[in-house]
Amino acid sequence: MNIGVVVFPGSNCDHDCRYVFRDVLGQDVTMVWHKERSVSGLDAIVLPGGFSYGDYLRTGAIARFSPVMEAVREYAEEGGLVLGICNGFQILLEAGLLPGAMLRNDSLHFICRDVYVKVENAATPFTGACESGQVLQIPIAHADGHYYADPVTVASLKANAQIVFRYCMPDGRVTKEANPNGSLDNIAGICNAAGNVLGMMPHPERCAESILSNDDGRIILASMVEGLKKRRRAEEWGEISEVQGNKAVIPSRAEDGLKIRGGRGKV
């Protein structure tokens, strides 16, 4: 698979993402400078963490106007997989590719430490290798991670199972104490209604190898790769049973237990 990692001025987790996809997961990686106007030929796009444009005005507010973002929007609308991590999540919110907004952490502190998140939806292309309710330990590193959306938006997120990760205790209990930044409903990650765009504050690329004593993040990034491979196999074998608009529904395979939703019509 060819994974595109977008590089904005001020991105600082782009090389970590490249390292994990290329050296840990064995995929091709293309670094995409933010001035590019095309993202064709890529199997997935990652908007990495960092401080794009120095977080001027608001986090992600300027980056969303980078030329590449118009191509990312079209790519997402066609069903392509887009993962935004930390600042990437903030950019997706500002761009309107995900609903809601980020506020300053309620403690006002920049928080850099491991947290636990509960997988609330294991049926996305990013969590296919997770068990529903699985607890992952992943680091966060942000000052603006307090997710906010109006009550109507939150109700629709819940109704559509778009809340993918919530901050929790090590045993999986979702409590106020487990919430590092004041995020509404302990939200750590959400996807769009089609399920092909995910934004998450924790950094899976920072904990994807056992030598680091924690490889929980690998499960998320490997889910993407395995889901893409499976989709390609299914397309090659002509197994797509149903195509609704941009949404390809692929029969799930019992042997690997991966479920895919919102796949791209063509890869």
């Binding site: 005005l57 608001r58 506020l103 959306a149 109006d150």
Partner: peptide, 8 residues
């Protein structure tokens, strides 16, 4: 479009 995020 830019100066305010009208969600918040």
């Amino acid at each position: 479009k830019l100066l305010a995020n009208t969600i918040i």
